[in-house]
Amino acid sequence: MSGKVTLTYFNGRGKMESIRWLLTVAEVEFDEVFLTTREQYLKLLNDGALMFQQVPLVEIDGLKLIQTKAILQYIAEKYNLHGKDIKDRVMVNMYSEGLTDLMELIMMLPFVPDPKPKLDNIQTKAKERYMPVFEKALSGPVYLVGGKLSLADVLLLEATLMLEEKFPEILADFPNVKSFQARMTLVPAISRFLQPGSKRKQQPDDHYKNTVMKVFNMTSL
């Protein structure tokens, strides 16, 4: 049996995309199984692969992991991307959970009938609640925590790129964050991930939305 990490999710970003980002930065190769039918999902349930009947599912080190934050923390610990001590790790986790909250707002946009009010809310929160935190944290350091690359840095890069897709000028008032973004994109593994043909997923479209709704037997949120 191959020892390669296997990801089971939809062929789109969603909650798996941060996991793809982190594995890429850790330079870990992975295979992907894409959910396209409800039968695939029901088989995972019947096989007992999904503890809480949820994906993402990541198979690594003989484990079947679910719950995105738990998966990210496992990978971060395994590949030394989680801080040098308990105080660093709690800072990494606080930054990471804030960024996850922000990105989940963007992830929900394809599933709401009128995204305009949601977009306005996301922009306001990004500019008033989230980006000021990182602008201050990056006023001197190269990285967010402990002078070394961590999960929090990876998620911040992902979040800023997602925000710029929706609001191209959103980082104009956050020069430290913009400089950080530029530095991060020069990391060789990240540079490759940002190129066409990589395993990075594109912004969700109607096909992605319809596949998710079909697999989960959803009519609406």
Rank of each mutant, 00 (worst) to 15 (best):
Q73I: 07
F134C: 08
D205S: 12
K201S: 11
L22Q: 08
Y143G: 05
N46M: 05
P188Y: 07
M1K: 10
T219D: 11
S220F: 10
S198K: 06
N46T: 02
K43Q: 14
K4D: 06
S139I: 00
P132T: 02
L105W: 02
Y79M: 06
G147D: 02
A152T: 00
Y208E: 00
L65C: 11
M213T: 03
Y130A: 11
K209D: 01
L109C: 10
E17F: 01
V28A: 08
P115H: 11
G147F: 04
F111D: 02
M51Y: 07
L7R: 11
E128Q: 15
F111Q: 08
I190Q: 07
L42F: 11
M103S: 14
L163I: 05
L102H: 01
S198Q: 08
Q195N: 03
L155W: 03
G3K: 09
T36R: 13
D85K: 00
L50C: 11
S191N: 11
V58G: 12
S220H: 12
Y9G: 13
A126D: 00
V142F: 04
S191K: 15
P110I: 04
V142G: 05
S96L: 04
T160K: 03
P141N: 15
G3H: 09
M103W: 02
M108A: 14
L65Q: 06
T219G: 12
T37Q: 13
D173W: 03
K118T: 07
Q195K: 15
K125P: 02
T124P: 04
K178D: 07
V33P: 04
K78S: 14
D101E: 13
Q181C: 05
P188L: 03
F34A: 13
D153Q: 03
S2F: 01
N121R: 13
S179K: 12
M51S: 13
S150E: 00
T100A: 13
L221T: 10
P110W: 10
L102D: 03
N46F: 00
G140D: 11
V177W: 02
A26D: 00
S18M: 01
L105K: 15
Q202M: 10
A126H: 05
P175K: 07
I170W: 01
F34P: 00
A126C: 10
K178N: 12
N210Q: 15
V92P: 07
I106S: 09
T36E: 14
E164L: 13
S18N: 05
G98L: 06
S179W: 02
S2E: 08
S96R: 02
A152M: 02
K125D: 06
K69Q: 15
E169R: 12
T37R: 11
F111E: 07
L155N: 10
S96F: 07
A70T: 09
A189G: 04
Y41I: 01
L151E: 01
A189P: 04
G140I: 01
A70P: 06
H82G: 09
